[in-house]
């Protein structure tokens, strides 16, 4: 067990070194070989970004925390809505027929068009922000969960029906456990998405959050701060992703896809 753990840490470190190395090389090429006058904006050296990050760590992490907590709220609400929608659609073929096209349509409506309407309905900026973050998040959860629920083999369902299991029991005993891996795949996609949604929401007239930092940095031409803020949001995305992976391991210890790696390949 501990060997595998050490192994994984080793792999992580190698990955980190490779990425940092690659980044620095590209930045070097851009600045010195291609002599790009905008190189420092296009792709600054990673160590410069990290230095900026450390210098502004307090402000960036503080802003990150605001965004992260909003993202968590949006993720929670969006995740629950996604699951409910998927269950309703799996219950009734008719609802699925009606619902699916409109789910797609819902993703086509830009926030710019939606925000005024949502503000008009709830009037309160804070709840409007969570609604918008949830609105962006629920889609991958609903789609993945639905494909999970639908992927349950007919035979297994019939078997449970034959022992006179009720609809609730079938869902509880068969459908939910079966679709959990699918749900978690959806959640893994949705977690970083919740972060970006929350960053977008920061820009809806908020005065705090990493999105505001990005916006300020963008138009004040402070490219180092901009990249440091982007780095922060990417880190938040990774931690969101890992939180879901962690949740999956705790809740679904039987699920092998993400925990066991290459048992058949060594």
């Amino acid at each position: 067990m501990s060997v595998e753990r050490n192994d994984r840490i080793f792999v992580g470190i190698v990955w980190g070194i490779v990425i940092i190395g690659l980044w620095e090389v590209i930045a070097f090429l851009l600045q010195n070989v291609f002599q790009d006058p905008m190189a420092a904006t296009k792709l600054p050296y990673l160590h410069v970004i990290i230095a900026t990050f450390i210098q502004n760590a307090g402000a960036l992490l503080g802003a990150g925390l605001v965004t992260f907590s909003r993202a968590a709220a949006g993720f929670l609400v969006g995740g629950i809505i996604g699951i409910i929608l998927a269950v309703i659609m799996s219950l009734s073929k008719t609802v699925e027929r009606i619902g699916l096209p409109y789910l797609i349509i819902s993703q086509m409506i830009p926030i710019l068009a939606l925000a005024p309407i949502i503000f008009n309905i709830v009037k309160d900026m804070d709840s409007a922000r969570i609604i918008i973050a949830a609105y962006i998040t629920f889609f991958p959860v609903a789609i993945n969960m639905l494909s999970g629920l639908k992927a349950v083999e007919r035979d297994q369902k019939d078997l449970l029906y034959s022992v006179a299991a009720s609809q609730v029991e079938i869902y509880y005993k068969l459908m939910f456990p079966f679709s959990m891996p699918y749900l978690f795949t959806g959640l893994k996609i949705a977690a970083p998405l919740a972060i970006t949604a929350s960053i977008l929401v920061d820009m809806l007239g908020s005065s705090s959050g990493i999105g505001v930092k990005i916006l300020y940095a963008l138009y004040s031409n402070s490219s180092n701060i901009f990249w440091a803020a982007v780095l922060t949001s990417a880190l938040m995305g990774i931690s969101g992703y890992y939180l879901v992976v962690l949740g999956e391991k705790v809740l679904l210890p039987w699920n092998k896809t993400s925990s066991k790696k290459g048992g058949d390949n060594v």
């Binding site: 990955w15 990005i214 990417a234 990774i238």
Partner: peptide, 20 residues
């Protein structure tokens, strides 16, 4: 053993806000 790290990097890309 090595490839899974790529998945994490990709999911980090997913967290770069569209505006940025």
């Amino acid at each position: 053993k090595w490839g899974y790290g790529g998945m994490i990097v990709v999911s980090a890309f997913n967290a770069i806000p569209l505006v940025a």
